[in-house]
């Protein structure tokens, strides 16, 4: 089995999906001959032609609107938004159309589209290139929001997203596009979209995370193990709809929970998980639920971005505090 980076796994899944289903088309800015600014679509236009791998004009609203129209006609469009900071012109199409087309037509039309976009900071990119606003997308009924944190899950979850009959926003952790490497077999097997992944078993505390910061969360868990704390690490992977059972089962077992996400704290998706635990897991809690998140500030420019993104020491400190709470 070849070892691939996360971005290569995405490319592999796209190629696989296009190979197995002629209805799959890829569209976005620079996705053609250039292969995308991160090279996610490299080689696809050469292999599948310019009619199925479309270099669109520089218009994000258009990309999302085209996807809705194509999907209603039975194509399976995979749109690329170059950076998450540029996804906002698509919100109208996602909220008012993609997510509700099936419901408002009572099943007469549907919208099997995927909108991919890089997510998060840490690559020393210019302003507006490092956002993590997944919570606002996860708030939209009718949508699926998926975020892999490893090459294997990127491959399997992207295949699942493309095959899914409903609209999916697929958020890709930019910071680990090339840093994350793993064995990926091109077997065409999708991973389920409604399952969280338990990456590490532990009985002392539950760490819940998603996206690039899963890396720091795992590193923190390894460090904590050296201090005698066995953390269970969950990669939520699908934020909408998310796997409540896996979260609750783990918290029931450990009694302590730390949620780690890169996005700003207030109204972040961690708040939803904390509310779930308060509603349905309160009696198992031995300590208050803690959150390690980005700050309630604008995502800073690169000189300070590492201070914004949750670090291993911050996660370790918060987890120790949760474990020491009596």
């Amino acid at each position: 089995m070849p070892e691939l980076t996360l971005i290569e796994a995405i490319n592999l899944a796209l190629a696989r999906a296009m190979q197995e289903d002629a209805n799959v088309v890829v569209l976005g800015e620079d996705v053609g001959i250039n292969g995308g600014v991160f090279r996610a679509t490299v080689g696809l236009q050469q292999r599948f032609g310019a009619e199925r791998v479309i270099d669109t004009p520089l218009a994000e609203l258009l990309i999302s609107g085209l996807c809705v129209g194509m999907a209603a006609q039975g194509l399976k469009p995979v749109g690329e938004i170059q950076f998450m900071g540029f996804i906002y012109p698509c919100i109208d199409q996602l909220v008012n159309h993609a997510s509700r087309l099936r419901n408002r037509t009572q099943g007469r039309l549907s919208c099997p589209m995927v909108l991919r976009t890089p997510h998060g900071g840490g690559i020393r990119a210019p302003e507006h290139h490092s956002e993590s606003t997944e919570a606002m997308l996860a708030h939209i009924p009718g949508l699926r929001v998926v975020m892999p944190s490893s090459p294997e899950r990127a491959y399997g979850l992207l295949l699942a997203s493309i095959r899914d009959p409903d609209p999916v926003v697929f958020l890709e952790p930019t910071r680990i596009y090339r840093a994350a490497k793993g064995q990926v077999e091109d077997n065409g097997e999708a991973l389920p979209l409604d399952i969280a992944f338990v990456l590490r078993q532990g009985h002392d505390v539950t760490l819940i995370s998603w996206g690039a910061v899963v890396k720091e969360t795992l590193a923190a868990a390894a460090e904590l193990a050296g201090q005698g704390i066995e953390a269970e690490v969950i990669d939520l992977a699908t934020l909408k709809p998310y796997d409540e059972e896996t979260v609750l089962a783990s918290v029931t077992k450990t009694g302590r929970c730390v949620i780690v996400h890169e996005a700003a704290r207030t109204g972040g998706f961690g708040a939803e998980i904390a509310a779930l635990i308060a509603e349905r897991g309160l009696t198992s809690l031995l300590a208050p639920v803690a959150r390690v998140t980005g700050y309630d500030t604008i995502m800073p420019l690169p000189r300070l971005e590492q201070r914004y993104i949750p670090s291993v020491p911050r996660i370790v400190a918060a987890t120790r505090k949760a474990c020491e709470f009596a």
Binding site: V25, E51, R52, I54, L61, L62, S64, G65, L66, C67, V68, G69, M70, A71, A72, Q73, G74, L75, P77, D92, Q93, N96, H97
Partner: peptide, 18 residues
């Protein structure tokens, strides 16, 4: 939402052409 069906129309037409 005014005019928001226009890019969808282009998507539909693209499917026909493809």
């Amino acid at each position: 939402p005014v005019g928001s069906q226009a890019p969808q129309a282009a998507g539909v037409a693209y499917a026909f052409k493809l």
